[in-house]
C-alpha cells in the first residue's frame, strides 16, 4: 500500500497497539469504539439524537472474548455491527436474508446467521467470529488448520461461515459420520460448489478437533 494511500484496512487501527490495550484505552476514555456509523443514520456524522422510545444505544458486547462498547441502532443487525463498527470484516454478507450462511457466527457456541440477528439481542451473550478462532499467538484453530491442510475451499467467500458452522456443529457432535456432518453444515451455501472437498476438509477438522481436545 502506498504511503499516501488513504485506504484504512479494518485491522490497521490497531497496528502498534494490542487490541486489548486499545479497547482498555477506549473504555477508560469513556468513548464508544465506533466513531462513525456508516450504514445507519444517527451516527455522529449527523449528530442526530436517538429516537424517542429507542432502546439503549451504547451497549457492551462480548466479542471474541473481549468487551466491546459500541453505539448500536435498534434495527441494526449483528453482521453490520461486526463489519462496520468493530472492524471484523471476516464475517461476510452473501445475501443478507438467511439464505446463504456466509455471515455465520457463534452465539453462546451455537451457529447463527448474523445478518438476521439484532445486535441488541446478543447483549450478555458470547459472540465468536472467524477472527476469534486462532489463538492470540496466531496458532490456527483445528478446524482452520484442517481447511489449510486440505485446501478445502476455492474463492473462500463462504469459508468463514462454513468454518464457524463446523466449529459449532462439532461441539454438539464431535465424532460425526460424513452424512451427519453434511447435515450439520447444510445451512451454508458454496457457489464454487466443491462440497466434496469441503466435507473432506471438515471431516479432517473433526479429527483435529477431537485430537486437540484430548491433548
Amino acid at each position: 500500500m502506498a504511503e499516501n494511500d488513504p485506504v484504512v484496512t479494518a485491522d490497521e487501527g490497531q497496528r502498534g497497539v494490542s487490541r486489548r490495550n486499545f479497547i482498555k484505552g477506549v473504555i477508560a476514555a469513556g468513548a464508544a469504539v465506533s466513531t462513525t456509523s456508516y450504514l445507519f443514520r444517527g451516527g455522529s456524522i449527523l449528530g442526530q439524537p436517538s429516537l424517542p422510545g429507542a432502546v439503549e444505544r451504547l451497549v457492551t458486547l462480548n466479542v471474541n472474548g473481549q468487551q466491546r462498547r459500541v453505539d448500536v441502532m435498534k434495527q441494526e443487525t449483528l453482521a453490520m455491527t461486526l463489519r462496520y463498527k468493530l472492524g471484523l470484516t471476516g464475517t461476510k454478507l452473501g445475501c443478507d436474508r438467511s439464505e446463504c450462511g456466509a455471515c455465520t457466527v457463534l452465539i453462546d457456541d451455537v451457529p447463527h446467521y448474523s445478518c438476521s440477528i439484532l445486535t441488541h439481542s446478543v447483549r450478555g451473550r458470547k459472540v465468536v467470529t472467524i477472527e476469534g478462532l486462532a489463538s492470540p499467538t496466531g496458532q490456527l484453530h483445528p478446524v482452520q488448520q484442517a481447511v489449510v491442510d486440505a485446501q478445502g475451499f476455492q474463492c473462500a467467500f463462504c469459508m468463514p461461515g462454513f468454518v464457524m458452522a463446523t466449529v459449532g456443529y462439532l461441539k454438539t457432535n464431535p465424532n460425526p459420520t460424513r452424512p451427519e456432518l453434511a447435515h450439520g453444515i447444510s445451512g451454508n451455501l458454496c457457489r464454487c460448489q466443491d462440497y466434496n472437498k469441503i466435507l473432506d476438509a471438515m471431516m479432517l477438522a473433526a479429527e483435529y478437533t477431537r485430537r486437540s481436545s484430548r491433548a
Binding site: A10, G90, T129, I130, E131, L140, F153, A156, P160
Partner: peptide, 10 residues
C-alpha cells in the same frame, strides 16, 4: 489460504 481462513483476506 491462511488469510482466507482467518478472515483477514479483503
Amino acid at each position: 489460504l491462511v488469510a482466507k481462513v482467518t478472515g483477514k483476506a479483503k
